[in-house]
Simulated scan of single mutants.
Amino acid sequence: MIKIIKCFFFLLLVLLFLNGCNPSNVNEDIFQFKDSYVGDNGAVGNITMRLPSPNGEHLNGLELKTTKEPYGIILNYKKADTPEEIEKNYKETAIYNATFIFALVKNADWVTFNFVDQEYRITREKLQKWYGKNLREFTNEEDLAKLTQEFLADKGKVSQFFRE
């Protein structure tokens, strides 16, 4: 009987340990990382993991440029092993992801997106001018996503953003 009890508690301990290792924070609000800094690789990594990837690609790493101002982030993508069903445009993905990074990371001045066959660099100044809003003023994901989707719906505006 004692062996059964010991075995039960051992299994319970293993299950509790495995549950503690579960990455349940993936669904948490991305705005918990608001006011992060480029130098905080944990926060920037968590932000970028929650952002969408285009055309069956996935984030393959990031570089934080913190040695001199202006500070920036480089996101490197690579081809995924299996294609995703959702196809996204590189330009739209870059704008969407940069919008969230600039809203959440205080001192990020630019972001470079290295996709498999395209590279885009977006600055905070240019993106905020495009929106006509200070992205730092947003306090929740819903309002920021609504603004972003509103602007991304106009393909002409998106194309114009990258021509300027």
Results as ranks from 00 to 15, higher is better:
Gly56Tyr: 06
Gly61Val: 07
Ile73Tyr: 02
Gly72Pro: 03
Ala80Thr: 02
Gly61Tyr: 10
Asn89Thr: 15
Glu84Ser: 12
Tyr90Met: 02
Ser53His: 02
Glu57Ser: 05
Lys79Val: 02
Glu84Ala: 05
Met49Gly: 13
Thr66Asn: 04
Glu84Thr: 08
Leu64Arg: 11
Pro83Ser: 07
Asn89Arg: 12
Thr93Leu: 02
Thr66Phe: 03
Tyr90Cys: 01
Glu57Gly: 07
Leu59Pro: 06
Asn55Ser: 04
Lys68Pro: 03
Gly56Trp: 10
Ile95Ala: 04
Gly56Thr: 12
Lys78Ile: 07
Tyr77Met: 11
Asn60Leu: 07
Ala94Gln: 10
Ser53Thr: 09
Glu57Met: 09
Thr93Pro: 05
Asn76Glu: 06
Glu92Tyr: 05
Tyr96Val: 00
Arg50Val: 04
Asp81His: 08
Asn55Glu: 02
Asn76Thr: 14
Ala98Arg: 03
His58Val: 12
Asn55Thr: 05
Thr67Trp: 14
Asp81Val: 09
Gly72Arg: 06
Glu57Phe: 04
Thr66Cys: 05
Thr66His: 00
Thr67Met: 11
Lys65Ala: 15
Tyr71Gly: 13
Met49Ser: 14
Ile86Met: 08
Pro83Gly: 04
Asn89Tyr: 11
Leu51Pro: 00
Thr67Pro: 08
Asn89His: 13
Glu92Leu: 04
Tyr96Glu: 01
Thr93Glu: 04
Leu51Met: 06
Ile86Pro: 01
Pro83Leu: 13
Tyr96Ala: 00
Glu84Phe: 05
Asn60Thr: 05
Glu92Ile: 00
Lys79Met: 02
Ile95Gly: 00
Thr66Gly: 06
Gly56Lys: 02
Lys79Gln: 03
Leu75Glu: 01
Leu59Ile: 11
Leu59Met: 13
Thr67Lys: 15
Tyr77Asp: 14
Glu84Arg: 06
His58Ile: 11
Glu57Val: 07
Arg50Pro: 11
Lys68Thr: 10
Thr66Ser: 05
Asn60Val: 06
Lys78Gly: 07
Lys88Trp: 12
Pro52Thr: 13
Ile95His: 01
Gly72Glu: 01
Glu85Arg: 08
Asn76Gln: 13
Gly61His: 05
Pro52Ile: 15
Ala98Lys: 04
Ala98Glu: 04
Leu51His: 00
Pro70Trp: 06
Glu69Met: 14
His58Thr: 13
Ala98Thr: 02
Asn76Met: 14
Leu62Ala: 06
Thr82Asn: 01
Lys88Ser: 11
Met49Ala: 15
Glu69Ser: 11
Lys65Asp: 14
Lys79Thr: 08
